[in-house]
Write a protein that binds this DNA or RNA. Structure first.
Length: 184
DNA sequence: CACAGGATATACT
DNA sequence: GTATATCCTGTGA
């Protein structure tokens, strides 16, 4: 099991290659982004609100929020020395429950099943129901990677502030990334 | 490539 | 109260 009681900057690169399942459906994590407490692009930057309250809860839990009024996005909560932070899970390489994911997404193309935070949540059936749930108990299942992977860092996607921070981590050469990795 | 879709939060008047 | 921005995706040019 991955220890979330550490700095998000230690945890985030470690998640690349880990296996994330919800009700047995999911795959290998190939892309994440780190958001820490001092980060203007983080929901936690301006303090606790109703929406982001699970970000301020215990580490090792999920923080699910609604993005652009339409999509769900899944974050994994970290905490080190009382400072909350989170890892946004941006893309999976589907390995388990492919047919279920295809049905939920309404398409066949493996590359489009979970290559993006909103797509990933739709494929895994993640909604507000999962906000605040622990990651080490059903329906969640999170397995640390068994084999080494090459992790690259780059600029984060879809933000306007603090874009120079290289806090996006991705598996080198994966074809399941939501977008190509760009240097910060 | 442009842009609609439309919840939630914050910053203004 | 109104305005603006957002950790995005599908569709149609």
């Amino acid at each position: 099991m991955i220890d979330f009681s550490r700095s998000v900057h230690e945890v985030a690169p470690e998640l690349i290659g880990a296996t994330l399942l919800v009700d047995g459906i999911g795959g290998r994590v190939v892309e994440v982004e780190a958001y820490d407490r001092e980060d203007p692009a983080s929901h936690g930057y301006r303090g606790r609100t109703e929406r982001n309250s699970s970000m301020f809860g215990p580490p090792g839990h999920a923080y699910v929020y609604r993005s652009y009024g339409i999509h769900w996005c899944l974050n994994l909560v970290c905490e080190s020395e009382g400072v909350p932070s989170a890892v946004l899970v941006r893309a999976l390489e589907p390995t388990r429950g492919l047919d279920e994911m295809r049905t939920r997404r309404g398409l066949d193309d493996l590359r489009l099943l979970a290559s993006g935070p909103g797509r990933l949540c739709q494929a895994l059936g993640i909604t507000r129901e999962h906000d605040g749930l622990p990651l080490d108990r059903p329906p969640f299942e999170l397995l640390a990677r068994a084999e080494p992977v090459q992790v690259h860092a780059g600029a984060r996607v879809g933000i306007t502030r603090a874009t120079e921070l290289p806090w996006r981590y991705a598996e080198a050469g994966s074809r399941f990334l939501s977008r190509p990795l760009r240097p910060a």
